[in-house]
Design a protein around this nucleic acid. Structure first.
Lengths: 218, 218
DNA sequence: CGATAATTTGACCGATTGGTAAACATTACA
DNA sequence: TGTAATGTTTACCAATCGGTCAAATTATCG
């Protein structure tokens, strides 16, 4: 007799680890493109190469699968912001934040789209995480940025909107990849577009945040 | 006997205009949140306040509804970029481009999300429009920006990634509205967040694109 | 090996999906 | 006003949806 998943409090077997990994990988494929409502268990089962009841043996509902996927991905996804260091040099910190986020957009576009889909739908499954851990992390980093501005290391600016703008510009290359490719055309849409983007964004943010000479000051 | 929609080549009646308007309005509500796959005709029918077969009298398939909606919205959505004027002053042109896009994010968030959803899913229904009219428009405006840079009116930069970055930062406030609100918290998430965003983005892009003194030059 | 627990599957369920058929209601217009 | 065209609805369809069940298969371990 199969033990219902909910009762499995003990150590997970090798098979469990492998299969759950396999399922979440397939789920990422599907959910990241079609969102929660637009995705079906059958699709995920087919991508995962196993039968639908077999999926449901590991995750009892579609929602449980989605939840597990979000939980697993959220931590990694916030890594670049978490790496933001108050002790470091503002310019190089911002630079490497941009670089890291762009690398994620390049290497983990599905993860980015998963969240984008979730946000578009009003974050029905992650609103708590947004208002809790995410907000706290952003608040913390906003303080860092504010302190830099106060110390005259960067221009005065709203730290929240600065973070938003770095998030949006970098994630754009994952979430709107089709559009970026279409607009750049075949000749410029190669792998180099991430390097071009990095160059542009670093220039924009570094120069845009340089301290401006106060008119009238010596 | 009802004439099938496809055969309706003549002028549209008043009722047709009203009902199609009503349907597309409801469709925008639904599609913009759930995407194409995640939306159902029943949902749209309920929002529109009419029966499902009645919807299908005006739009024979779910796809036809979606297509009509995209067509109608695409033109308006590109207005800010189209308004970009080569003759104008670079600084004020960029400023008003940002402002216009932010106003669209504030006043027409559903339209923004509709496109975002479509992009996330790989633009299966609009790839032609992207590679055609959109690319041409962006190419044209990119030339303008490049000319400005060449004339020394703004800093040298990749015009495509500049446009991408303005698109992404502004649309962020529509597409990721939940996240923005959650992070800003109740106190700062009021209507003022668009003004704050405008201030920040204008500062960022204007200062970031100021011509830099060439080291070594007189 | 044997037996017990863990895993996998085909068949199936009721609900929902996109869409149809045809009867019914309303409108436009001669 | 009459009537033909237009508009609307109820009832329905096959396919697909999320999910269950019990039987069959496989892994684990003494």
């Amino acid at each position: 007799m199969a033990i219902p998943r909910a009762a499995r409090t003990q150590r997970r077997t090798r098979i469990q680890e492998e299969k759950e990994e396999q399922i979440l990988e397939a789920a990422l494929d599907v959910f990241s493109v079609s969102g929660f409502r637009g995705s079906t268990i059958d699709q995920i089962a087919e991508v995962a190469g196993m039968s639908k009841p077999n999926l449901l043996y590991y995750f009892r509902t579609k929602e449980a699968m989605h939840r597990a996927l979000i939980d697993r991905v959220l931590f990694t996804w916030l890594e670049p912001l978490r790496a933001f260091d108050a002790e470091g040099n503002p310019e190089s910190e911002i630079r490497s934040f941009i670089r890291r986020k762009l690398e994620m957009a390049r290497d983990f576009p599905r993860e980015s789209r998963l969240f984008a889909n979730e946000m578009l739908q009003g974050a029905p499954h992650v609103e708590d995480e947004l208002k809790g851990p995410l907000k706290e992390l952003v608040d913390e980093k906003a303080d860092v940025i504010r302190a830099w501005a106060k110390a005259g290391k960067i221009a005065k600016c709203d730290p929240y909107h600065l973070i938003f703008s770095i998030w949006s510009t970098t994630q754009h290359y994952a979430d709107f990849d089709v559009q970026v490719r279409a607009v750049l055309g075949q000749d410029h849409a190669g792998a180099g577009r991430f390097d071009d983007a990095a160059r542009f964004l670093e220039q924009l943010f570094i120069d845009g945040l340089k301290v401006k000479p106060v008119p009238g000051a010596s």
